[in-house]
Amino acid sequence: MWIYKKQLQFPVNIRETNPRLAKAIISQFGGPDGELAASMRYLAQRYHMPHPEAKAMLTDIGTEELAHLEIVGSVVRQLTCRLTADQMKAAGMDDYFVDHTTGVYLQSAAGHPFTSAYLQVKGDPITDLHENMAAEQKARATYENILRLSDSPDVNEVMKFLRAREIVHYQRFGELLRIVQDRLDSKNFYAFNPAFDQ
């Protein structure tokens, strides 16, 4: 189970609204390489992991991604609060406004709703850990693209923190992959699924 702490993992204090930037950043809320997909991927992959280190890491990183989801939602909120319909329209956000007003919806920058098709649970620890390493790289690249689009120092501080976390998570998943491969049965020459072929 989970316990909630009434505090962001990294502080978010954005002084200026910017609906156009919010529409880009919302991709890390509910988009293909976003934080919800990351969290659900890791928390769902825990069940078939054969080694306790992997169960622990997926639990903890999956939990941290929820904290990141909350940070991204806070950024989107602060970039769009107190806006009028005219300001939303002027920023090209009238299509979002008509469906969600200034609520924070789980969607990509292009408006696609969140789907679990963004992630995979293959049931093979080696396959899944490779997916997770790729996912961390994709999230890092997305934060870099956001940094290229943004000229807001308040936003950039937060994006740089989240980008750095993707790098650490990538490192930790790489270590897990090594642990799983080191513990393969010595007769499993071809690294068949160690969670299924006993």
Partner: peptide
């Protein structure tokens, strides 16, 4: 945050 970072590290270096 520092404590949290150590948690992740300890998961692969128990």
């Amino acid at each position: 945050f520092a404590a949290w970072e150590l948690r992740l590290y300890l998961n692969s270096h128990p």
